[in-house]
């Protein structure tokens, strides 16, 4: 059947299918609605979408499940994109961290509300309103109190220890969820026969480090790898075996090469068909009375009686 289908470009929808915790969409009295905000993604340094719950109390990251050939039936309507959005709670420190690092280069203690500022993403200052933000700043910064004012300065040492804890907790979560962390496994639907104990601790650590690195700059990710005392993998792709494709056929399987020729007696005697100039000149040398090389290595021939 002829398929004359033309793909029309995706049109932006004004509705989405979202999975979110109640706390994400719960509206507190007299407070603002939960809102999607664009903030600087610490890993990519460009805009990503996040959500701040009512009153900016909690930060959520937005992840979209997107695969070809999916659509939604929503009530009596059809939604073209089969996209499923997930709103999941996120530690605001990850987004605050890059700003602290940047100001930390000056080596001065500063009030955080002067540090977490971004002309491109003005909404970033709202991160400080999150319930956890100010209370957990001590994980990544040194604090000084002068009167009623608090000042902070980025501390790499503290940050590394904090991130290490994050990795360790991620490892616990990975084990609890039976997530396959082995190098070779690519499919999430693939059911492994091996038990969890078959993964070594390093597999878990690397996997968890990779996950946490989704929320860190490249430099920080490398520093964390050092801190975890994991050697950098040079090129993981080389460890993969080359892909071999074998054509399927009903014919019986045959060896690709014929090795039986090595068994035949005349194989050894046949001179190689093509010789280099050097080999040719060597072949012309008078070898009478000379021992062959191999005779020196073979067991001694008994002297003739």
């Amino acid at each position: 059947m002829a398929t004359k289908k033309k793909r029309t470009p995706h049109v932006n929808n004004d509705s989405w299918v979202v999975i979110a915790a109640d706390s994400a969409i719960h509206i507190q009295k007299h407070d603002s609605d939960p809102a999607f905000v664009r903030l600087r993604n610490p890993a990519t340094d460009v805009a990503s979408l996040y959500m701040l719950s009512s009153g900016d109390a909690q930060l959520f990251e937005v992840k979209a499940f997107e695969e070809d050939f999916h659509s939604w039936f929503v009530g009596q309507t059809v939604q073209r994109d089969g996209r499923l959005l997930f709103l999941t709670p996120m530690d605001p420190l990850y987004l605050i961290l890059p700003y602290l690092i940047k100001s930390g280069r000056e080596g001065k203690f500063q009030p955080v509300d002067q540090v977490v500022m971004d002309e491109e993403f003005p909404a970033c200052s709202r991160l400080l309103s999150c319930t956890r933000s100010l209370a957990s700043l001590h994980h990544i910064a040194e604090e000084k109190e002068v009167g009623s004012l608090k000042f902070h300065r980025y501390s790499e040492e503290k940050t590394m220890n904090w991130l290490k804890k994050k990795v360790e907790r991620t490892v616990t979560a990975l084990k609890a969820r039976s997530i396959s962390v082995g190098e070779g496994v690519k499919s999430t639907t693939y059911v492994r026969m091996k038990s969890e104990s078959d993964y070594c601790e390093e597999d878990y650590l690397r996997y968890a480090h990779g996950l946490i690195s989704e929320y860190l700059s490249e430099d920080l990710s490398k520093a964390l790898l050092n801190h975890l005392q994991l050697p950098e993998l040079t090129s993981p792709k080389e460890t993969e075996p080359p892909s071999k494709k074998r054509k399927l056929s009903d014919k019986p399987v045959e060896a690709g090469d014929d090795y039986t020729k090595f068994n035949s007696a005349d194989f050894a005697r046949k001179p190689p068909k093509k010789m280099t100039a050097a080999q040719k000149s060597l072949a012309k040398v008078d070898k009478t009375g000379m021992k062959t090389m191999s005779s020196f290595f073979s067991p001694k021939v008994k002297a003739e009686k």
Binding site: V46, L49, V62, A64, S213
Partner: peptide, 22 residues
């Protein structure tokens, strides 16, 4: 999107990605 940044396979295997707009 930063072209050098490679999303971790936890997300790529699950077809999950970040968005910058709705």
């Amino acid at each position: 999107q930063n072209p050098t940044h490679q999303t971790h396979r936890f997300f790529t295997e699950r077809r999950l990605k970040s968005l910058d707009t709705l």
